[in-house]
Structure formats: structure tokens, C-alpha cells
């Protein structure tokens, strides 16, 4: 398949990675006060780890220089920060002193992550838009 639109595969991978990140953020926000998960423990914040992927290039177009790199979500890791404890006596998950272990999710942090993620997503969409425009212009050479 001829690569009509330059750099499209790396951008597609980036859109995918950012979407996974947004899903993880939404999962964190949804579980911001889940005090008991399937394992009986409070929910632990999850975070994504991005990693570069070397892209395969066609032997003809590739020269000795550096190859452009793609991106992927390598792992989704739990955040190891300790759980917050809040005083809620009478809560079914409260200990003898009335303290409840709450998830280590900070809503403000998650919102900042969400905005960064969606801005990066938009930037990648802009890349596709420009690449498409360039490809169409190239195809229109000598049409007029």
C-alpha cells in the first residue's frame, strides 16, 4: 500500500494511545470514592505509561537518517501512593477508629490530565488535517 498521507500511522497510534489515557482517567474519576473493590481494598489510581515504537520504513524511502517514531501505551500501572483516610464513622468500611480508606485519586490531577490528553488529541488531528491537505495538493500537481 502506498503511503499517500505522510506520517499517518504514527499519528493514528498516538490518537489511540491518547484515547486509552482518557479512558483510564475516566475510570479514575468514576472510582474516586470507591472504598471497596473486588479485592476488598479501596480503588487504586491507574496511570498509563507511554513508550516510543520504532516505525518500519520502506527500504526505498528510508535513508541513513533517524526514523520517525510512533507511540503506544506500554503499560497501565497502579499508582503506589498511599490511600487517603477520612473520618466517617458508621461507614461499612470504617475501621475501629471510624477512619475509612479512600482511593488515592485526586480529582484536580485527573482533570488536568484529561485536558492535556484532549489537547494532544486535537494536535494529532491537526496533523492529519495538514497531511491530507498536502497529499491532495500533491495529487493536484499540473491539474491547472
Amino acid at each position: 500500500m502506498i503511503d499517500f498521507i505522510p506520517g499517518i500511522s504514527g499519528t493514528a497510534a498516538a490518537l489511540n494511545a491518547e484515547r486509552i489515557r482518557m479512558e483510564v482517567v475516566s475510570q479514575n474519576i468514576a472510582n474516586a470514592s470507591t472504598t471497596r473493590g473486588p479485592n476488598g481494598l479501596p480503588y487504586q489510581r491507574q496511570q498509563v505509561v507511554f513508550e516510543t515504537v520504532l516505525q518500519q520504513r520502506l527500504s526505498g524511502s528510508g535513508s541513513a537518517g533517524v526514523s520517525p517514531q510512533s507511540v503506544k501505551v506500554a503499560r497501565v500501572l497502579p499508582d503506589t501512593r498511599p490511600a487517603r483516610t477520612t473520618f466517617i464513622p458508621g461507614h461499612p468500611d470504617a475501621d475501629a477508629n471510624g477512619m475509612v480508606k479512600m482511593p488515592n485519586v485526586n480529582i484536580h490531577e485527573e482533570m488536568a490530565d484529561l485536558i492535556t490528553s484532549s489537547r494532544t488529541y486535537e494536535a494529532n488531528l491537526a496533523v492529519i488535517k495538514n497531511a491530507r491537505q498536502m497529499a491532495l495538493q500533491t495529487l493536484a500537481i499540473s491539474k491547472h
Binding site: P6, G7, I8, G10, T11, A13, A14, E18, R21, F50, E51, T52, Q55, V66, P68, Q69, S70, V71, T116, S117, T120, A123, N124, V127, N130, A131, M134, T138
Partner: peptide
């Protein structure tokens, strides 16, 4: 120059794709 421009776009696409990757160096 057209070849170079397309290659440069690929580089910028890779940079923006890796805008959030730790230790990535722009090309």
C-alpha cells in the same frame, strides 16, 4: 524540496505523537 517537506511533516507528526512520551527527543 517537496520530498524534504513531506519528510519534515513525518518528523513533526512523530514529534506530536510523542508529545507526552518521557525522554523522547524531537527529530
Amino acid at each position: 524540496l517537496l520530498d524534504a517537506t513531506v519528510l519534515r511533516h513525518e518528523a513533526i507528526a512523530a514529534n506530536i505523537a510523542n508529545a507526552e512520551t518521557p525522554n523522547y527527543k524531537r527529530v
